[in-house]
Amino acid sequence: MLYAVLCYHREDEVCAWSKAEDDAVMAKLAVVQDRLAKAGRLGPVARLMPTTAATTLRKDSDPPLVIDGPFAETKEQLLGFYVIDFASLEDALGTVRELARANPGGAYEVRPISLFHPSHLPA
């Protein structure tokens, strides 16, 4: 089954990484990603811009309200996501533990995907 792995972390902290620290974390994550890619299980991966670049459309009013910033003000922010094919939740948690060792702090939310459109963007 396809799972979304949603990456939460404290943005203040990630923004405080130096270029070298950022590169080091990315390199460690790439090791896990490469293995998944070679196994043909890795879908789209995205790192999101800071939440300051986000805009939210609240559709619980009519007309919808456009608000600057992310949907939720939380201690940890959604900073990126993976789409990965896992055999089971245990399988998913095993891999996510590896990602966590590569990039400690914050949280990964593992969420099964119910509808998936492969990308139509140019590579």
Partner: peptide, 18 residues
């Protein structure tokens, strides 16, 4: 979890608020 660089970043990130 005991990566000193990580703790440095956590301290820097929390500094202004604290």
């Amino acid at each position: 979890m005991n990566d000193p660089a990580w703790i440095e970043a956590a301290l820097t990130g929390a500094r202004a608020q604290a």
